[in-house]
Design a protein around this nucleic acid. Structure first.
Lengths: 323, 323
DNA sequence: GTGGTGCCTAAAGATTATCTTTAGCATCTG
DNA sequence: CAGATGCTAAAGATAATCTTTAGGCACCAC
């Protein structure tokens, strides 16, 4: 009187709807083998074959076809109920990330991930496809020091900070002797890196590289990277800023280096992703994390190439990221 | 996009339909605690209460009530599909048992079990509520020796064999000296016990108890107990037959003992129930087994009282029979 | 043919989910 | 107030379920 093998029935219906065990497996976030097992378990229980596995898709057997219509509507109804209950929450990933990171780095790259996983919805800092659910962040991305207390913390990349300018300004500065370039030139201050012990402010930098400048700490201050870069682009001055989030601008030569790359410094802090342990078991989150680390590696490698000096590699906190 | 927590949703819907976790637990063949856990797991996943546990039944919360209609139809459809797939097989118990045992002992007693478990259907020797499925017997009941190879074999009870007669004949015989009672009196032979080394035939019995009788092995022979007892009841003669299946006849004095009970013998063989290992895990089968053993114990105890001599107790093959 | 690819299956072991058990608490009832 | 009834909590046991890895089979291109 009570239906058993609910998961088997679900796999069965989905396999027929999608046309293959593989496709069903993808939707169910399982391996194809698992889907086959689900179905086989039911077939063995009933002692009857339910699915004809042929080339060019799957077909229901005669025994099944009578019941198939009921199965379809049943799972349609369940989908409807699930939608009302917001049960598809599993497909939603909630991020909290600094807006610089989101706007400059994450959002442009996220398109590739979204293309591969159309059903996954994001809620980033409370906005996005997925509705906001307070206190329910799956992953927080920050720029800071290691926090040993946070178990599932991935180091994405450190930043590489050096003077940057617009092409015009860089060209203008290039005509001056390095030691004279800053004198009288407007300096932009990015407070984003203020707490990083390795990142110099203009005063430190000028002194370290024998560059003359009066009142090196005066000038416009920016809390965030993006407005600072915009100011740089608007020829407002030269900024001491990290490149990690600006690969595209650098590659399009919108952002230039008025001083040798060797005058730059790796940050002590790094962009890090902290995953909630409870979230990290979800296959959707696993997939996102895997993708995030892969993208971060690309950025890290690019940075290393740019600055000519390999960043000290972080000890990779190896964790199973498989499905 | 794919519904998770199917079992939780099932428990939820069922709890609301039946009005209590307990009732739902019974239908699901679970403990109430398990049903509560299922529902709670979903509530915790969603971060929302779904069920108001109040006195006088359960109520859905506002969050749930919108989805409830969909859940209902979903599980109705699943029930329909399950019916077509014969998925309710779990509620069917298939028995193979000697017809004597079925007709004389099991069938009258089975009413009490059926009353407690209305949803369970039986298929006994191919007949009954449940459709026949060959090669799919959950339990076989036989009269025979222990078979060590059969793991899940329960000893129900041994038989106690002694001369039995109808009230009339018993009364008639009582007027003769014990040693003369059989001479000229028709003897009925029950071949049911033929292979049992402990059960005497009339020849053995007559000799053992100093009872004169010419040609003690002649007379009508019966393969089964029931026809033999019917013949006894029809005053066809006196039979050497076991009592285990005949409690009701004895208690209604339809079956009498023309000789002292001390002339009876316990059978070496016993009525045994062999459960298929695969079946014995099913809660329905567990429930039946438990009931069967309890009923068997009643019969064994009654037999012991009747014959005044305690049967040697079988070593109880202790196995977990709990839900 | 021959090798490659896509898709399903098999077997094993690992990992979870799920259940039972036992105890506890609150509410209702006599 | 004692006793029932019904839900909940925590722990441990059990069983379902998944991943992994390997292998088979059909199809297809070369």
């Amino acid at each position: 009187m009570v239906v058993t093998h609910l998961r088997s029935l679900q796999a069965l219906e989905l396999a027929l709807r999608t046309g293959s065990l593989q496709a069903a497996a993808e939707v169910l976030w399982l391996t194809p083998a698992a889907v086959g097992q689900r179905i086989k378990a039911l077939e063995e229980y009933l002692g009857v074959d339910l699915l004809v596995r042929g080339r060019s898709g799957l077909r229901p057997t005669a025994e099944l076809s009578a019941a198939l219509a009921h199965l379809r509507t049943a799972f349609e109804e369940l989908d409807a109920a699930a939608a009302l209950l917001n049960l598809q929450r599993g497909d939603q990933i909630h991020l909290a990330a600094m807006s610089d990171f989101v706007e400059l780095w994450l959002r442009p790259r996220l398109r590739t991930f979204a293309a591969e996983h159309p059903q996954i919805q994001f809620c980033i800092n409370g906005e996005g496809d997925a509705p906001l659910r307070i206190g329910d962040v799956d992953c927080e991305i920050r720029f800071g020091a290691e926090q040993p207390a946070v178990s599932e913390s991935d180091l994405l990349f450190r930043d590489f900070v050096l003077p940057v300018a617009s092409p015009e300004n860089a060209h203008r500065l290039a005509r001056l002797k390095p030691s004279e370039r800053l004198e009288g030139f407007p300096l932009l201050h990015v407070d984003f890196y203020r707490d990083d012990r390795e990142v110099p402010n203009w005063s430190d930098w000028a002194e370290a590289h024998g560059c003359r400048r009066t009142d090196p700490n005066r000038g416009i201050r920016f809390q965030r990277i993006q407005p600072a870069l915009e100011a740089v682009g608007a020829n407002a001055g030269v900024a001491l800023c990290g490149l990690a989030l600006s690969r595209e601008s650098v590659e399009r030569s919108e952002l230039c280096f008025p001083f040798p790359v060797s005058t730059g410094r790796w940050s002590a802090h790094a962009f890090r992703a902290d995953f909630r342990p409870k979230s990290v078991v979800r296959p959707q989150v696993k997939a996102f994390r895997q993708w995030l680390l892969a993208e971060a590696t690309l950025t890290r490698d690019w940075l290393s190439r740019i600055c000519g000096v390999s960043e000290q590699r972080p000890k990779p906190s190896r964790r199973k990221l498989s499905r």
